[in-house]
Write a protein that binds this DNA or RNA. Structure first.
Lengths: 293, 293
DNA sequence: GATATCAATCGAAAAAACCGATTAATATGG
DNA sequence: CCATATTAATCGGTTTTTTCGATTGATATC
């Protein structure tokens, strides 16, 4: 068993198509087939079901997958560690960001790219849930999101700053200039809410649960961006973190009474995992950038 | 970079002698030299200092070492997972045990070997400190020791049962038939104590600290076995867990007054790491075996 | 039923790993 | 201080492994 074979396996498991996987690994389909077969022979188990011309992971393949990911991920980290040690500012950095924290990110990304022109930066926008899964699968170096209400053993949280949860309305909405709003009041308005899985919704749900309340949204949407567009062109009310309306002059954010503390913006990392020098550098820029606001 | 090279590197780092390392890996010294060199070329860094005919790890090599261990360890686990899945009772199991828990272990080991004749079992007796390091270096599957007073983030503890800390004396010693003994009383006797690093000593030190006391042993010894032999043939007093005197009819264990709870015998494992089926099986035997007592 | 797409297989070529012998450097011991 | 033993590096040749390109057979798709 060699790392090469594990890499081929991972790509094949991802695409479920040997021809595509081979192309992406810059080898021929023949080679990929043979290497997978060799791996299967060594493990004495089939990793893929070949039903007709389709391939699926077998149960064994599914079990093997996370271990293979872990192994390859660790190997890549080993290389990264050496590069960090040499002060070589190369490699790649994959970060996940939830929508609420994205405003003001562009200038930081630009500064980072300027200072580290040889580091390939990949930014993933997604729900906190999805990003967390990607983090666990070693597909991300860190996630910028919110402190989780349900703590995860494997995840390390580093708090950044608080972001209050607010009702978001158009500036012509009757609520627009109200100082704050209670959850009960909120119930009287037509609501469009972020779906379960978005961090703002998780925080809202917690708040509702402790206050023994329930809201009936007309719409749930797993994209905060579109949600805001909706509110911009209607009299619907949504609930998101205050920072999401930055750069949208037609919207107003009204703090929610019941919440003592806002959501805690946090850096989420895998506990005990090595943090790349480039990751540290990015976070430093991010903290500096946001502290100025 | 391939697993093969990482394995060669690990062995070379362990022996610090390419010739020996090559022998142990069943390749020639020539091959090992070449593979290490290839790895160094790929990483663009020297992993070993070749000073004369001696080799040492460079700083980079030292940094690389734990990552290489982790990677190879994960790869081995991946294979193990597949074997577990197939119910193949093969592979190897490496466990660490502190002396205090060793009594009564022999029959369990024999039963395990009988039921799993194809699993290569390696048992390491050592201090809790050493075993913990081995566990972190992925050299052990689990450690049978005591719950740590200073908790470690990476280590998972599973409690088994309590073992009281006792003063151990020969049956002709004046203390031999006393119901219990205070730490203050203990101060009046000639003491031979386990060294720092042995779990009994750690527990004792904690007890002394909370009671603001200090003991002056005549001797400190990092082997409980020899310590007991000493006490068996003298009027010295030592402090160890009660279970250590099982099978030694000439010794008596007198509980220490100040302690509310004994030391907690525990299984120590790496947090989040996969536990082999064979490891689970061994622990099951161990728990069954000790519960009967 | 023709066509396109897919994975497996085969033989040959290319690459890589490995070996044995040699060299050069340096400890060791008389 | 010199002879000897030990060590890692290097080199040429061999073996093994990986890879490729072409083909085959199976099966979706139109």
């Amino acid at each position: 068993m060699e790392l090469r074979q594990l890499r081929y396996f991972l790509k094949a498991a991802e695409t479920l198509n040997f021809t595509d996987a081979a192309k992406q690994m810059y080898i021929t389909q023949s080679t990929l087939s043979q290497q997978i077969k060799q791996l299967e022979t060594e493990l004495n188990v089939l990793l893929f079901d070949r039903i007709g011309k389709k391939v699926f992971l077998t149960e064994a393949g599914n079990e093997f997958l996370p271990f293979a990911k872990q192994t390859v991920g660790d190997a890549d980290l080993a290389v990264q560690r050496i590069q960090d040690l040499q002060g070589i500012r190369t490699g790649s950095l994959r970060i996940g960001i939830t929508y609420s924290l994205s405003f003001g990110l562009a200038p930081i990304i630009l500064r980072f790219m300027k200072e580290y022109p040889n580091i390939k930066l990949e930014v993933f926008y997604n729900t906190a849930q999805e990003l967390l899964q990607m983090l666990k699968d070693r597909e991300l170096d860190f996630v910028l999101s919110f402190s989780m209400t349900v703590k995860d053993e494997q995840i390390e949280e580093t708090d950044l700053y608080e972001v209050p949860l607010c009702a978001i309305v158009h500036l012509r909405h009757p609520l627009a200039f109200q100082k704050n709003i209670s959850l009960k009041e909120l119930k009287q308005y037509s609501l469009v809410l972020p779906s379960r899985g978005l961090s703002a919704r998780s925080a809202l749900n917690d708040l509702l649960q402790t206050n023994d309340l329930k809201l009936d949204p007309h719409l749930e949407m797993n994209d905060a961006n579109i949600l805001l567009q909706l509110v911009e062109s209607s009299l619907y009310v949504t609930v998101l973190s205050k920072t999401t309306i930055l750069g949208r002059p037609e919207l107003r954010a009204i703090p929610i009474k019941e919440q003592q503390n806002g959501m805690m913006a946090s850096v989420l990392t895998m506990k005990g995992a090595y943090q790349k020098a480039s990751a540290e550098a990015f976070l430093k820029l991010f903290e500096e950038g946001t502290l100025l606001k």
